[in-house]
Nucleic acid binder design. Structure first.
Lengths: 326, 326
DNA sequence: CTGTTAGCGCGTTCAG
DNA sequence: CTGAACGCGCTAACAG
């Protein structure tokens, strides 16, 4: 019952201005196929809309339809990685072509009652990056009565990254693996999955279990940290980095330690960020080709919105971008 | 009039279950200070809420209040830079402590009618990254009857980046400036402002006008491009990069060309991305300290929502992070 | 076949 | 603490 500044222009205003009923205005604006409005009337309505600068009030629209065309992506990350940003931007474009609007909410764990964006929003669907196994989170989301799609959920996929890294390294003659873990807390669950993949693949190849070393996001500290790890082993070493960002820190540390890459120590990252090609030496890394899974995701979102059950999503295709660091 | 799956739990359900009226339910849930509800009744209502898993339907809420507590950030960027992402995340946290929810919409120019997120949303305010001088955009947004805050708007601020870069370089003895421009289209207006600052400061210092060179985001191409620029000049050269990402490309090019940094060519970036310290050599760059302007921004958003006029925002503090590249 | 009336959806709030 | 009205767009049912 608030009134802010100049009163909103409503469909009633348009109806009055064009001498028709509100229903007619609605029919014209929504191009209702079940109604045939004479072009002349239609013109009059559209003209009034234009002149008055009318635009329908979305809450009212959502209220009466019981559905909005919003898709809410809930991102519980401390930082939004460029790769994720690109992916979501792309997803948004695709959804837009189906008449949906993708919006992002970036926040802590945002699980607490009224802090959760869905409390303020009512999307047609929620795209959740929460671990699929998190039952509490799932239960919490249920209250909003909105279908939820979990992305990035599979433990298997996380492991595949680590496995792929090890395979590449092993093929290059590496016999001893270090896993360079991130310090960021929000991403530990992801790192754990990748590490597990590294472990399993080491086992499979008959390599010793990986040394796990957390790499601080600071050049001097990274140097010490890498040094520590290398002190504990010898032989031909390969470092599997949680992601490219960690890999940059590792590469800098190795440079500072005067260790030759890839001759003495090989390094492989993950994500293929745009900057990866510019490191010294250029970073060998893993790229997700999510074009396929993206299509699947769009289909799943649309399906879920219309009440169907989602089909399992195809796994992201992983490919190795072999540059000079491994 | 749609009904999806199990009907929503409404406040009427809660009222029925707890034997009170819908009004009372509302009073209890909103802790209305003008009403005194007996603790016992309050308990009963809250219990029913809990048991039924009720959560208010936000469109209805917004409809009746005429205001949502959503703040919409419209981001017309091809990519969301990590720095911007961090800033917005921070802004979101601050707004949350005032009871508002920040959401992002990332899309092309998104100016076309129904494609614009505000068409589907009705935020309490829009945070726009569109150039303040863009009258068409401003007119378009007006139709939504929602206050708009423009961020990142000042040409002066854009110029200050370029100026600061040149000052640092000149102090280090550089006599000839190259401006390394980005290829990304969405960001040209920003780059132009920074370049203009570089120009003006060169003039002020009595240096020759800067050479402008666009740096492609590809290692080999960047090398050629940097080579081109350097062929056209001699003397002690400094390269002002549009941002750190471009700077990484430039640094890689110089490495590939076997040119010493900073002895032969000095390089300075902008943004101080987390990776900046890990380049070879570590990147000298410019950091925005937006903590002050952030406070101002929060205040302005709150002011604008309650119908006041925004106060001019304090300029971002710029500081030079001097590392080894310049 | 065109256009109108009436009433829904749900939370909030005023008068009582 | 309650009944009733309100905000605004949508649409079934109905009238001209």
């Amino acid at each position: 019952m608030a009134e802010k500044g100049p009163r909103r222009v409503t469909s009633a205003d348009v109806a009055r201005a064009s001498g028709v009923s509100r229903a007619t205005v609605s029919y014209v604006l929504n191009n209702d196929p079940r109604q045939s409005i004479p072009p002349e009337t239609r013109e009059r309505v559209l003209k009034a809309v234009e002149e008055l600068g009318y635009s329908p009030f979305s809450p009212a629209r959502t209220l009466s339809k019981g559905q909005s065309d919003l898709i809410l992506a809930v991102l519980p990350f401390e930082q939004v990685d460029p790769d994720l940003a690109r992916t979501l931007k792309d997803l948004g474009t695709r959804l837009a072509s189906h008449g949906f609007t993708l919006i992002w909410h970036v926040g802590e764990q945002s699980m607490t009652g009224r802090a959760h964006p869905a409390f303020h929003l009512t999307p047609a669907a929620i795209l959740s990056y929460v671990d699929e196994n998190d039952a509490t989170a799932a239960a919490f989301l249920r209250q909003f009565n909105v279908p939820v799609i979990a992305k990035m959920s599979s433990e298997i996929n996380r492991q595949r990254v680590g496995r792929t890294q090890v395979v590449h390294l092993a093929q290059r003659g590496v016999r001893r693996i270090v896993f360079a873990a991130p310090e960021r807390q929000d991403v530990q669950w992801l790192a754990q999955g990748r590490l597990e993949g590294v472990r399993l693949e080491c086992e499979k190849y008959g390599l010793e279990p990986p040394i796990v070393q957390t790499i601080p996001p600071d050049r001097a500290a990274a140097r010490t940290s890498v040094q520590d790890a290398l002190n504990r082993i010898d032989g031909s070493v390969g470092i599997c980095c949680y992601n490219d960002e960690v890999a940059f820190a590792v590469l800098a540390a190795l440079t500072d330690l005067n260790i030759k890459v890839p001759e003495t120590v090989a390094v492989i990252g993950c994500d293929d960020i745009p900057l990866a090609q510019f490191s010294q030496p250029p970073l060998t890394t893993i790229r997700f080709d999510n074009s396929r899974s993206m299509m699947g995701l769009v289909d799943n979102i649309l399906a879920v919105i219309s009440g169907q059950t989602p089909t399992p999503m195809p796994a992201d295709q992983l490919s190795i971008i072999a540059r000079a660091s491994a």
